[in-house]
Design a protein around this nucleic acid. Structure first.
Length: 701
RNA sequence: GGCGAGGUAGCUCAGUUGGUUAGAGCAUCGGAUUCAUAACCCGAAGGUCGGCAGUUCAACUCUGCUCCUCGCUACCA
């Protein structure tokens, strides 16, 4: 099924440098990518593994505002933090680059111009909000106002963080710029659009037909969903002062859309790698193998040669960009190859809830490393055995402990330790000679021989959990062999036989040291040190003669240690405490609205009414159609509360209603008035009721 | 509401083109063992494969409907 590729270009999603990244990100993209790459390298493949920080887009300046600093300071801070965490967790990037680097700006601008010069981008003028004082167009995120849905006074132009609704800036009531505080005005602005719909047929052929069988169902399904829904033109530029300048004469104040430049970051990183290698000075490059003598232009082979296999490792949130938009860009440019696969993972939940940095329900990489500095491999293993490969999965601390204690310690570490300690005891820590083989030995040798190919087959198909389990099975094979042959009993009567057994047990250990490398690189290194063994290739594995008779071993040490219940309880406590403190901290976010006069207030005719009837609205998830007795009359009110109230439970309830609100047609029904609600910070709604029943029509003042 | 992905043993998950008694790890129980971090090894128990109907000699696997979870998207306070 797989073509024999000459070389590989492997990318791991560029993490957005606006904050720390958690273990869900690791499970989604980075761990699988690293395992895959390490496996390829062990096979002597010509592979380049790239990643780096994604440092543009509106969220960066936004985060800078929050932290009261500059965009540059934000990206410098998080770039360094994320890069260092990755390194400590063993991510073996050949380069970890940044999209703020000039070579990336250059690459992105060249890419944009290629499309522009081919006439593939459409210029379109539309009306956008402009801040007359700051003299800039405002990205959605820079406009705040009152949320038309929940009344939150500090809703962003793209989203209300209170109720979670997706908004467009024009929906905001009383919008104002976060830069000047002034109300923005609509002004025409020009942007360049990529007409995705023109490539529908091409996409159908490329994805729906040619990748029907080799792409994961979750990835394929999402692509199909997008393509079937009909693609639309998408602006590839933005009005913003943070990002890559649009390389055209009349494009002052315009930058490339972050999703245009971010995936190009893979290309820039590759380019930067070869430039640094050719020039012999490493700034971002961390080459993981000997690239030999290279020329600056060699990067092109990794992006334009049909014999290169390009694979993007991402999380499921990135599917549309990596499978639809970026491939269209690559395709239309005419200069680049397309990804062979995009094995996107689903999400990893944490202790029963969605992982979220902003809500404090997460284990950030740096937090883990602070608490378990000497255990990067334990996290890698716990994540690997539970990757969300086909559906969302779940990480729990209890499971983390179990994986460590019951598998890494009890099976893997234990087997290696048994083989080594016995050798030290009976053979002066040297590899004993192997004598005549018994049927048991022969069977183990046969089984051992099959492991490299079995693990490889799983990895080639991006089945990392299965591959990880197979490595553990090899350690199981070792334990079983020792249990069956019982060398400690034979030691008194037949030392040569004991030698044969331990020789084979050590050969299994030597194989383990190599085969486990993609998964647990730190463990692999320590084990090789104990065995005093060289770096064997994948092809050499499966052999029962890796280590020669008489070869001296180093002092055996334990590979893993148990994790106690208290440690786990401490982590769970810490997690809950973090969530609680963030909830508390995010409490007083709402600013008071601008001052009003008593006259302004008196314009509102607010009454207490009684709900007489409530029914669901067809085809609507949020709306209830209510009949309300206002004391004045009985009227119909459409209310977006269906997600929080059952129709039957609110009938008969008294509610507060704004009766002189201009009527508005909603879902074809005229809504006469508005039910007032208290919206909690999670967006949930509660009725506003008088403390005791009053007669319908009672005024609120 | 539309689209997509899931719903398989107590837990976390596999199940290839429909084909004998539906698998793994962990947890549980029993046995054996003591070289090893009370670890390992052997064995047992445990599932009407979300529900209903259909196609078929045969359905976890295909089709339709339905319920639940997650994601995107739409109406909306």
């Amino acid at each position: 099924m797989s073509k024999n590729y000459k070389r590989y270009t492997i990318s791991a999603a560029l993490p957005y440098a606006n904050g720390p990244k958690h273990i869900g990100h690791l499970a989604g993209a980075y761990i699988p990518a690293d395992v895959y790459v390490r496996y390829l390298r062990l096979n002597g493949k010509d592979v380049v593994f790239v990643s780096g920080s994604d440092e543009h887009g509106t969220a960066i300046p936004n985060q800078a505002l929050k932290e009261n600093t500059t965009s540059r300071a934000i990206i410098d801070k998080y770039h360094a933090q994320i890069r260092d965490c990755f390194e400590k967790l063993g991510m073996s990037f050949d380069i970890y680059h940044r999209t703020s680097e000039s070579i990336h700006h250059q690459t992105s601008q060249e890419f944009f111009l290629t499309l522009y010069n081919k006439g593939l981008l459409n210029e379109e003028v539309s009306e956008q909000y402009f801040d007359t004082e700051a003299k800039v167009f405002l990205a959605d995120r820079y406009i705040v106002g009152t949320c038309p849905r929940c009344g939150h006074t500090n809703a962003y132009g793209d989203q209300c963080e209170k109720c979670g609704s997706t908004l467009s800036p024009r929906e905001l009531i009383d919008p104002h710029s976060t830069l000047s505080g002034k109300p923005p005005v609509l002004r025409p602005t020009k942007h360049w659009y990529l007409p995705l719909q023109q490539y529908e047929n091409w996409l159908k052929e490329w994805i729906l037909n040619s990748h029907k069988d080799d792409w994961k169902t979750n990835v394929y399904g999402q692509c199909k969903s997008w393509i079937d829904a009909g693609l639309q033109s998408r602006a590839m530029t933005r009005d913003l002062d943070w990002g890559i300048k649009v390389p055209l004469p009349d494009a002052e104040g315009k930058v490339l859309y972050v999703w245009f430049d971010a995936p190009i970051g893979y290309i820039s990183a590759t380019r930067a790698l070869f430039k640094e290698l050719a020039e012999g000075k490493k700034e971002f490059a961390t080459p993981q193998r000997d690239f030999g003598k290279v020329a600056e232009g060699d990067w092109k082979k990794y992006w334009s040669d049909e014999e290169t296999k390009l694979v993007h490792f991402i999380g499921k949130d990135n599917i549309v960009f990596h499978c639809i938009i970026f491939p269209i860009m690559l395709h239309t440019s005419g200069e680049y190859i397309l990804p062979d696969n995009v094995p996107a993972n689903e999400f990893m939940n944490l202790e029963g809830d969605k992982m979220s940095t902003s809500r404090g329900w997460s284990i950030e990489m740096h937090e883990y490393l602070e608490d378990f500095p000497d255990k990067p491999d334990v996290l890698r293993y716990a994540l690997l055995t539970n990757l969300p490969e086909t559906k969302d999965s779940e990480f729990t601390w209890k499971d983390f402990q179990a994986k460590n204690n019951n598998e890494l310690v009890a099976i893997f570490g234990n087997f290696v330790n048994r083989a080594l300690v016995l050798t030290q005891k009976y053979f002066d820590n040297k590899i004993p000679a192997s004598g005549a083989l018994t049927p048991t030995d022969e069977k183990v040798i046969t089984d051992l021989k099959e492991f490299p190919a079995r693990i490889a087959a799983s990895l080639e198909n991006y089945r990392f959990r299965e591959a990880t389990a197979l490595v553990m099975d090899l350690a199981r094979l070792g334990n079983k062999y020792l249990a069956e042959t019982e060398p400690w009993k034979l030691a008194k009567t037949d030392l040569p036989r004991v030698g044969t057994i331990l020789n084979l047990a050590l050969q299994i250990s030597a194989n383990l040291a190599v085969l486990v490398e993609p998964f647990l690189p730190f463990t692999s290194a320590r084990l090789k040190l104990m065995l005093n063994s060289k770096n064997f290739t994948w092809q050499e594995c499966g052999s029962h003669t890796l280590l020669k008779e008489g070869h001296a071993l180093s002092e055996p040490k334990l590979l893993f240690e148990k994790i106690e219940d208290e440690t786990i309880a401490g982590q769970i406590k810490k997690l809950n405490a973090k969530k609680a403190s963030i909830e508390l901290a995010s409490q007083p976010v709402d600013l008071a609205k601008p001052e009003v006069t008593f006259d302004d207030f008196s314009k509102m005719d607010i009454r207490i009414g009684k709900i007489l009837k409530a029914e669901r609205v067809e085809k609507s998830k949020k709306l209830l159609k209510l009949q309300v007795d206002t004391g004045i009359d009985v009227r119909t009110v459409m209310s977006g509360i269906a997600e929080y109230f059952q129709p039957e439970e609110i009938v008969g309830k008294q509610v507060t209603i704004l009766v002189n609100l201009a009527p508005r047609k909603i879902m074809g029904v005229e809504s006469q008035g508005m039910i007032l609600m208290a919206s909690d910070k999670d967006g949930s709604l509660r009725l506003l009721q008088p403390s005791a029943v009053v007669s319908p029509g009672s005024k609120v003042s």
